[in-house]
Amino acid sequence: MNEFLLIFRRDFITKEAQPSPEELQQHLQQWQNWFGSLAAQDKLARPLQRWDGQGKLVNSKGTTDGPFVEIKESIGGLIIIKAKDYDEAAEIAQGCPVLNFGGNVEIRMAV
């Protein structure tokens, strides 16, 4: 069994891309059920952690307020899961609710 980092990104800036309050409510429930499902399969490698949405960005010129949006998507969250290989991790990520709002999931295997 390997560990994989799953990073969820989506566009949190463009007005048209944002869910309505009802959609958001439903969306949160989808996230919760998805996490519940992963936990029920004992696939969570670490306790879930919430992350602040804004953050800071540091480079050689100094520190600026986040989020980092040179690409349109910014990080919504990340989790570490247990999976056999990249195929299984990708299959799990296919169920991620971030995809419903045009987001994506980046996967990295722990080595």
């Binding site: 059920n33 996490f35 519940g36």
Partner: peptide
């Protein structure tokens, strides 16, 4: 009940909670 089971299983894995959550689902 499902929401509570989701939170419970996220907090601490146990086979019986996993099964009960699926029943609630």
């Amino acid at each position: 009940i499902l929401e509570l089971y989701n939170n419970l299983i996220i907090l601490e894995y146990s086979p019986i909670v996993a099964l009960n959550r699926t029943y609630a689902l």
